[in-house]
């Protein structure tokens, strides 16, 4: 090649190189970097047949700048606890009582005589004026209290840390504990991989405890003997998914369960025997990979969900047409 030709070639290559660099530099931006080739995709399971959704969100109460952890509904008032507080809020959002706690409250249970707050490792009993009446600590270091229930004057305290349920009198006297182990081989004791371990007592005075690692809801008597259970494991809407669900439960007056799941957040209603009856709120209503909302039900079967991610109490009522 002639010298001149080579020079031209050289300059041309340099220009092309500069061009490539500039094009690459300009072209690589937020508009055309493309999606995630390794997306963890659960979209197909998020779709819920609209005819299954029998509830609609009627209102919500913004909680402002607090970190809520647990809630109860009692006689038209909302009892809510969280990072270093216990509050009572009227149904319209008016604050009625505010107790500050030294540690974070995790669960709360209100009755006529008292309000019980469960901290991670302590049970506190207040009267309705906010005065501390009683308090005690279970004796192990690994205790992690997640739920409270009262049946026949026995206070049941769910200890997720030790995978057991503790029993006390309401004065704080220890009555015993159980780990949910049954005699037969088909059901295992409580499997609790994460701090979600909920209990509920229904209108028929039955104590139901979630066994999240088994995707099961189990019925125990006062002595801690397993009397029955149902389980439903599926990514689809009919079942529970993930390692440990349902994370929270509540019961309607007819004994049906309201369940709340984490991961793919959804709130559903199951019959006493475990058939899916309807859906309260589909995953699209919640943040992706969100925390399971605490669910509670009032005497009119209205469902209250405490949405931790958005810091809202969301109220779901049955659609009238159904």
């Amino acid at each position: 090649m002639s010298k001149k030709g080579l020079s031209i070639l050289i300059v041309a290559i340099i220009v092309v190189i500069i061009g490539i660099i500039i094009i690459d530099f300009i072209g690589n931006n937020a508009l055309n970097r493309g999606g995630n080739p390794y997306e963890y995709n659960v979209d197909e399971y998020k779709e819920v047949d609209p005819s299954l959704i029998h509830y609609k969100e009627t209102k919500n109460i913004a909680l402002g700048d607090i970190i809520p952890r647990g809630m109860d509904i009692f006689k038209g008032d909302i009892y809510i606890t969280g990072e270093n507080f216990l509050k009572v809020i009227g149904i319209h959002g008016v604050q009625k009582l505010n107790i500050s706690l030294e540690e974070s409250g995790i669960c709360v249970l209100a009755r006529d005589e008292f309000i019980i707050a469960g901290l991670e490792q302590e049970v506190l009993i207040f009267d309705h004026m906010g005065k501390l009446i009683n308090s005690w600590k279970p004796d192990t270091e690994t205790t992690y209290i997640t739920s409270l229930a009262i049946l026949n004057n026995i206070l049941f305290v769910a200890d997720a840390g030790n995978r057991r349920v503790l029993k006390y009198t309401t004065e704080g006297n220890y009555l015993g504990e159980f780990e949910g182990k049954s005699e037969s081989d088909d059901q295992h004791g409580f499997i609790i991989p994460s701090p979600h371990f909920d209990m509920v007592v229904n209108e028929f005075d039955e104590l139901w405890i979630v066994n999240p690692g088994k995707h099961a809801i189990e019925n125990y008597n006062e002595k801690g003997e397993l009397r029955g259970f149902w389980a439903s494991s599926s990514m689809n809407i009919e079942g529970f998914t993930g390692c440990c669900n349902p994370a929270e439960i509540a019961v309607l007056s007819n004994g049906s369960f309201v369940t709340s799941e984490k991961g793919m957040v959804r709130i559903k209603i199951y019959s006493q025997s475990g058939e899916l009856e309807s859906v309260v709120a589909a995953p699209e209503k919640f943040q992706e990979e969100g925390t399971a909302p605490d669910v509670k039900v009032d005497e009119n079967d209205v469902v209250y969900a405490l949405d931790f991610d958005r810091k809202l109490i969301r109220v779901f009522e049955k659609k009238l047409s159904e």
Binding site: I67, E83, S104, E120, T142, Y144, A160, G161, N162, S194, P195
Partner: peptide, 10 residues
């Protein structure tokens, strides 16, 4: 904070 509280779960 959230993470820490989870980390204390035994």
């Amino acid at each position: 904070f959230a993470a820490q509280s989870q980390q204390r779960f035994p």
